[in-house]
Amino acid sequence: MNICVYCGSSLGKNEKIKEQAISLGELMCKRGHHLVYGGASRGIMGVLADSVMQNGGEVVGVIPKNLFKKEVAHKGITELITVDGMHQRKSIMADRADAFLALPGGFGTLEELFEIITWNQIGIISKPVVVYNLNGYFDSLIQMIDHAVDVGFIKPGNRKILRVAETLEDCMKFCEQEL
């Protein structure tokens, strides 16, 4: 299984996120899964890619030309795909992935997460989407989504597209389940 992981190109301020990215890479490899991600060598993205590679897994990175130097493209992975822009990046990542997992991250992580939820909602794909709610990172986002359900902007059935994991083991379990 190929799991697309959305995460930050920075490390953030909480060391536990870095530790969990390392553990996630180890767990993915133990379960025979491969990583599809944004192609950077730094931040949580780089930490996760390094962990997967160090544990014998395969890593496919997809990075736009304009971010190649800014995010410092990871040249030590199984396959690095350079594309013209973000839309192409996201399309290739979606094609290559069997499931999607969001770790704590910034605007890019959230944008990719919402786009892949929407693709599931409108039927472009039908693949699991999971957020790792490490230390309650996504609590406010989940609350906002649930509020949108309560006021009628998100259908209750569509709310089920997004699964919330509190542990790395749950992340893997939810990624491995059919929708």
Rank of each mutant, 00 (worst) to 15 (best):
Q20C: 06
Q143Y: 13
D98V: 02
M28D: 03
A97Y: 02
D146T: 07
G25M: 04
S23A: 13
V151F: 11
L134I: 14
I44C: 08
H34V: 00
E115S: 09
Y37I: 04
V62Y: 00
K30A: 09
L141D: 03
G43M: 04
N55V: 07
Q88K: 15
H34T: 00
L48C: 08
L48R: 04
D95E: 15
E26V: 09
E26R: 11
A94S: 15
A148W: 05
R89C: 05
L24S: 02
M45Y: 08
L103I: 13
T118K: 07
Q88S: 14
P128V: 03
E71H: 08
M144F: 14
G76W: 00
H34E: 00
I122N: 09
V52I: 04
K65N: 02
G25C: 02
D84C: 05
L27Q: 01
K69M: 09
A102Q: 10
G108V: 15
G38S: 13
S140D: 10
E111R: 03
M45P: 06
V83L: 09
V83H: 05
W119T: 10
I124W: 13
E115F: 03
G105N: 07
T82K: 13
I154F: 11
M45W: 06
I125A: 14
K69F: 07
G123S: 10
S51Y: 01
Y132V: 05
F138G: 11
Q88G: 02
V72E: 12
G46V: 05
K18G: 13
N120W: 06
